[in-house]
């Protein structure tokens, strides 16, 4: 599938109808979402034929993009049932079968390493401090291959340091810097800042003992 085609399809998805501010619900736009998944697939081979988890899947954009690029199994997790409902409708509309779990990502208990790749646009932690790092720590624990995530550029050094020191990351690389449109209600510092700089990261976890598999 071509990048433009993927972007076009993602543009047709239904998004949050009544976004919940406390959960930092805003969608990853089709431009960013398509580039994230396209890079994961075409540069790193982390999507097709893999088990992909979408943490905080919202209306399913990243998970559905993974399925469109040939992920064998996609699992979307969100704490908000209304979002999961919209995500299910989006999946049905696109005739894609993906699994959903209604759960708090931080309370997830999964067997490690069944999931190959985690894709996510975590809450930036403006509402609940540290929630982006909680998502990242969990993602690096369950993924056996790679984690793709978006984080505010202003936190770049902190993310790198913490991922490597505390979150089981073997490497943490920025693939590109993007501009992210965040609706006015999520203003970050009381300024009119609605377009913030974010980094697209690729993290690679250390293997855990059991995964003798390639």
């Amino acid at each position: 599938m071509k990048l433009k085609q993927l972007e076009g399809l993602l543009g047709t998805l239904q998004q949050f109808s009544h976004p919940k501010v406390e959960l930092e619900q805003y969608p990853t736009g089709p431009h960013i979402a398509s580039r994230l998944l396209y890079t994961a697939e075409n540069t790193f081979g982390d999507i097709s034929g893999k088990v992909v988890a979408d943490f905080g899947c919202g209306c399913g954009t990243l998970g559905l993009a993974s399925a469109l690029l040939g992920a064998e199994q996609v699992i979307g997790i969100d704490i908000d049932p209304q979002s999961l409902e919209i995500a299910s409708i989006n999946a049905a509309d696109m005739e894609l079968d993906i699994d959903f779990i209604w759960c708090d990502v931080n309370k997830l208990r999964w067997r490690d390493d069944v999931v190959d790749t985690v894709v996510m646009n975590p809450p930036f932690g403006t509402r609940k401090k540290g929630s982006d790092m909680e998502f990242l720590a969990k993602a690096l624990k369950v993924a056996s291959q790679a984690v793709y995530s978006l984080h505010k550029t202003t936190t770049r050094d902190y993310i790198k340091r913490t991922a490597i020191r505390d979150c089981n990351a073997r490497s943490a690389d920025i693939l590109c810097e993007l501009r992210f449109d965040v609706p006015q209600i999520y203003k970050f510092h009381k300024k009119k800042e609605v377009n913030i700089a974010v980094d697209l990261w690729r993290f690679v976890p250390y293997p855990t003992q059991e995964s003798a598999d390639s």
């Binding site: 199994q73 699994d99 759960c103 999964w110």
Partner: peptide, 21 residues
């Protein structure tokens, strides 16, 4: 939910030691 998903889920209640399968 497919059985692949079932195969990785464990009970997530605090303090539960044998929550799988």
């Amino acid at each position: 939910m497919r059985l692949l998903t079932h195969n990785m889920l464990s009970c997530n209640i605090k303090g539960v030691a044998n929550g799988f399968p």
